[in-house]
Design a protein around this nucleic acid. Structure first.
Length: 361
DNA sequence: TACAGGG
DNA sequence: CCCTGTAACAGCTTT
DNA sequence: AAAGCT
């Protein structure tokens, strides 16, 4: 297994223990005991391109990437998507943990309009929790686009997340710290069964990379930092870090404006159509994942799908460079002062939205 | 996967 | 004891 | 209203 060294001796020792373990074992992680089972169970079946990936491989992988992954999970309520019988078996979503939970697992209370009450949500703030999530066969880690920590840019926002929707609305949980621009190829290989999503194939992924590169270039020219990353199975995400001044609704409509702009630039290659048949042969731009919904965390927020990093081949040599996800603060109000292109559209849209809000109030 | 509940 | 069920979910678009 | 889609 390549690249198994991490920054710390403790994690390296844990990796060794994972390698040496039998099918079931108890690990010591950061001073906590974690029981794991079925380490030899295949979670991703083997293909022509890769060997089968077992639960052992998966947990090892989580430990290896923990120093990169944890900073992005920290302070963000989670939605788990669990696949106890592997990616081809039945999956289920989970936000709450009703059972006994280990003492190292942190949670946060949030109000949900759906249940009309406060609920306890899981967060992941340490390696032990990451291993525990691996044991639960949680193959997808979805987070809110918001952080519960006000530092460094959210000090004016509310820190009460319980009691009412109004409390959520005025709190940090209504102010995302990034925009996500989602690009998915609807280019079929021809081997898909009827009604199936397009499978991953080279031409579709290449085209997505081209469009993503064009979009990133737009943003680069405006001095807006953006980061391209593989997403679900076949597509790419572009993350634009923002200062927390804009509510979910506004972030969503800004993503839409960016999409319309991209669509104008590449009408033959990009689509924002609802119906799948009309998307065929094009790259689908989805702005809706920037929305919030009445319950948190929003299930749309697929930010840390580990499945993606395993199933998407990023090493096709001739493809445009894929940028690692990284986050720095992009100051929206300052950038919005810039004229031209996308930003005049966004600025106009933002003003219109605010006018609309005033007239409907 | 982990657990509760019913037969 | 074994078997089965449950663990989320809202909003948007189109017909 | 219902179904399709993420």
């Amino acid at each position: 297994m390549a690249q198994r060294k991490t920054k710390t001796k403790e994690l390296d020792a844990l990796l060794d223990a994972i390698d040496a373990a039998g099918n079931a074992e108890e690990f010591e992680v950061e001073g906590h005991k974690i029981a794991v089972s079925n380490l030899n169970k295949v979670l991703w079946p083997g293909t022509a391109d890769h060997e089968p990936v077992t639960k052992r491989d998966y947990i090892r992988y989580l430990v290896q990437v923990s120093e990169y992954l944890l900073p992005h999970l920290k302070d963000r309520p989670l939605t788990l998507i669990r696949y106890p019988n592997g990616v081809e078996g039945k999956k289920f979503f989970q936000k709450h943990w009703e059972h006994k939970k280990p003492e190292f697992v942190d949670t946060i209370m949030l109000y949900s309009e759906h249940s009309k009450s406060d609920g306890e949500f899981i967060t992941c703030s340490n390696v032990a929790t990451l291993v525990w999530l691996g044991q639960l066969a949680d193959l997808e880690l979805h987070t809110t686009h918001t952080r519960t920590n006000p530092e460094p840019d959210g000090k004016k926002l509310g820190t009460t997340f319980t009691g009412s929707v109004a409390n959520i609305d005025s709190s940090l949980m209504n102010y995302p710290d990034f925009v996500v621009l989602d690009l998915d190829p609807y280019m079929y290989s021809g081997k898909e069964k009827k009604g199936e999503e397009p499978e991953l194939h080279k031409e579709g992924f290449e085209k997505t990379c081209e469009i993503a590169a064009a979009l990133k270039e737009n943003l680069d020219k405006l001095n807006v930092e953006a980061f391209v990353k593989t997403s679900g199975r076949t597509g790419l995400h572009i993350y634009v870090p923002i200062v927390r001044n804009i509510e979910y609704d506004m972030v969503r409509s800004i993503a839409e404006v960016i999409g319309r702009h991209l669509l104008k630039q590449h009408p033959k290659e990009v689509t924002m159509e609802w119906s799948v048949s009309k998307r065929t042969g094009k790259i689908f731009f989805d702005h809706n994942m920037n929305g919030r919904g009445k319950t948190l965390p929003s299930p749309y927020s697929a930010r840390n799908s580990v499945e993606a990093t395993i199933s998407t081949p990023v090493d096709w040599k001739e493809l445009p460079k894929i940028y690692p996800t990284d986050f720095t603060i992009w100051n929206v109000p300052k950038r919005l002062e810039k004229k031209g292109d996308i930003w005049s559209d966004i600025l106009e849209h933002k003003n219109n939205m605010e006018k609309l809000k005033k007239t409907t109030e």
